[in-house]
């Protein structure tokens, strides 16, 4: 901060209040930054301090006992994985098709492109509890799926779709036009160019989109309460109800007196998975930079 101040002119009468203003602003923003960093540290350390004692490979592999107070989270992990699988199985093809259309086949400003983009923008803002209501009405009741992994996964697919479309559209647009011209020059149809040139080149970016969507889905709870439900058993099929990690934390903390210990441990597992995902996107991102030589 001292170097910048040196560049400020020395207007004799105005300088002292100016410098005081600069100093005050600097102190304030540093204080805020310290506070924010401190709170993050507080949250993480508190989780680790209380949760690590409960954590071990047995916790990941055992079934919960005593309403989740004891035992592990094996069925919860399985349900989380199944719901993610359903979410991606629906969101990826639908989202990729939309992204390909938006980036390669229609003009950016066309009415249809505008309509799709606006709709997805609004969808991105819909609160998760409203997704829960929607999923409950449509999948659980109208489609007769009941509280199930399938209903939960479909609800989350609708929820992560805008994120996935936007991120993979960006990945496709980031491919230099030289590739498109070269493909056209070789006589490829536009679709052939997409399949054998653009998609492979944009793959790392699309992977980032996928990983971001997984992160969003992992963090979600409110949309699942009334779609996948909160049964704690190991799901045997997509028609079974089951709870994810996030719901497990909520249920243990709110509805199971004495469940805090395992809630802490589950929260660590959830946070750990999200950190891995964060790391994954960073690594893929670096890979993209290396490949395009930027």
């Amino acid at each position: 901060m001292t170097t910048r101040e040196a560049t400020a002119p020395r207007g004799a009468s105005a300088a002292p209040p100016r410098r005081r203003g600069d100093r005050l602003a600097a102190i304030l923003v540093w204080a805020v930054a310290t506070l924010v960093a401190g709170v993050l540290l507080w949250i993480v350390l508190d989780l680790l301090r209380h949760g690590l004692v409960h954590l071990g490979h047995a916790f990941l592999l055992e079934a919960p006992r005593d309403a989740g107070r004891a035992g592990g989270i094996a069925p919860v992990l399985a349900t989380t994985g199944l719901i993610l699988a359903v979410t991606l199985a629906v969101a990826v093809p639908l989202g990729l098709a939309s992204a390909i259309l938006l980036s390669e086949f229609i003009r950016r400003g066309s009415a249809f492109a505008q309509f799709v983009r606006r709709s997805l923008e609004v969808l991105a803002g819909v609160p998760s509890i409203v997704f829960g209501l929607f999923g409950n009405a449509l999948f659980v009741h109208y489609f007769g799926m009941g509280y199930s992994v399938a209903a939960g996964g479909l609800t989350l697919a609708c929820m992560v779709l805008p994120l996935f479309v936007r991120a993979s559209e960006e990945a496709l647009r980031a491919v230099p036009d030289d590739y498109r011209r070269a493909a056209a020059g070789l006589g490829l149809t536009r679709f052939a160019a997409v399949r054998s040139v653009l998609l492979p080149v944009a793959l790392p970016g699309i992977l980032v989109a996928l990983v971001l969507s997984v992160g969003r889905a992992l963090a979600e709870a409110a949309a699942l309460l009334f779609t996948s439900g909160y049964v704690m058993r190991m799901p045997e099929s997509l028609a079974d109800s089951g709870r994810t990690l996030a719901i497990h934390v909520y249920e243990l903390a709110m509805n199971v007196p004495g469940g805090e210990g395992n809630a802490y441990a589950t929260a660590i597992v959830l946070l750990g998975l999200l950190l891995l995902i964060n790391l994954g996107t960073a690594l893929i991102g670096r890979h993209v930079l290396v490949r395009t030589g930027e």
């Binding site: 939309s98 309509f115 929607f134 679709f191």
Partner: peptide, 29 residues
Amino acid sequence: ARTERAVVWSLRGAALAAAAIVGLIVALL
């Protein structure tokens, strides 16, 4: 050319489905 047209139309269908979700949410609510 016909394959290309079929592809574009199915992409349009997918994008339309994605865009329709928000309308469906409003309608259901």
